[in-house]
Nucleic acid binder design. Structure first.
Lengths: 194, 194
DNA sequence: GTCTATATAACGATAGAC
DNA sequence: GTCTATCGTTATATAGAC
């Protein structure tokens, strides 16, 4: 029956202990600034005011922290994806994109880590649950079409959103200004009349 | 008179010794795979079959290698930028974009390092010559407009190109297929009739 | 231009006390 | 859940011979 709930989100995103949550939050901020490879466990421990050993008590390895951090951020997309899949037809894409843009703008500093960091990219490609989640995402984005044009278009729009929110050119824009422009240009690019 | 030549490229891009060139080439490939923070001098030395000390003889610090690598890759854009600046009016943008796309496709594995690696991003923001070069680039891309819309659009199109060429969705496409789709969607997005 | 050898520091990770 | 202390490894960087 409701063993997986209505979303079947593919992501664990289990509610974690307070200590684990603090580590993940601190790690994400440091990953965004220094990259995953440039962030040490010492830096994470210092950021939350504990020792390395305390961090290792919560996560056995550094990779586990990276996985947890990516899970937490990707889980934010689950409601948007659920809503889009509930909405069949051309409206589904518009529902997904406006919510994805909202999230990307609100979390702009974390986006580049999730989308472009080589360590995370490798993780997304190797970790089964992440793969399935990304497939769900791109199925809504591309639709049934699997041609070169549809895939290039999907790659462009997903990286355009992710890249634009972190771009120095728009660093001074407030969230609402950035959001409205992104929605407008994204709809134009995808020929969505709204 | 011609002290800077016709391009005034802002970039040194000085022809380097063969030993330095080999280091930079190996470093770029490793940066693309592991990120700058995840690449050690030992890895670079191993890749070209010498010891760390030999690498340090060519570059005093790791940062110097990163600067040289970024310089070499950005210098590839100089001819395209020169050509675009020579071509006034709306044709300038089309000239720049088609050449930038050619380069991005040909160098796809290096693009994410240059555009998204946090170490490189910081370098681009702090290093004066890089700043000036990027300003030149975005002047052609944006034009005289400095409004929010123009800047969001420029950020989207530059990251859409850079992100699309490295995206897993299009990893199986050959250079020519990827190139032609990118040119088509980019023109459509920018309302260039060609 | 490359090597061996080394200094010094930081890395990921673990053991055991509290 | 956090600590001190430590292991083994790797990091950046240097000195000096060839």
């Amino acid at each position: 029956m409701s063993s997986a709930g209505p979303s079947a989100s593919c992501l664990g995103a289990a509610p974690r202990s307070a200590a684990q949550a603090r580590i993940v939050i601190a790690a994400l901020a440091l990953f965004a600034e220094n990259g995953v490879g440039g962030t040490s466990l010492q830096m994470i421990a210092d950021a939350i005011g504990v020792t390395k050993a305390a961090v290792y008590h919560q996560f056995k390895t550094k990779e586990e922290i990276v996985v947890a951090a990516v899970e937490v951020e990707l889980a934010r997309l689950v409601p948007a994806l659920d809503a889009a899949e509930a909405e069949a037809g051309p409206r589904a894409l518009d529902v997904l994109l406006t919510q994805v843009i909202d999230l990307a703008v609100a979390r702009r500093r974390m986006v580049s880590t999730l989308e472009y960091d080589p360590v995370v990219v490798r993780l997304l490609a190797e970790h089964e649950p992440f793969q399935q989640f990304m497939q769900r995402l791109f199925r809504v984005l591309i639709g049934p079409d699997v041609g070169a044009a549809a895939r290039v278009r999907a790659a462009m729009i997903s990286t355009a959103i992710g890249g634009a929110v972190t771009h120095p050119l728009v660093a001074d824009l407030d969230d609402e200004a950035l959001r409205s422009q992104l929605v407008r240009f994204t709809r134009q690019f995808l020929d969505i009349t709204g």
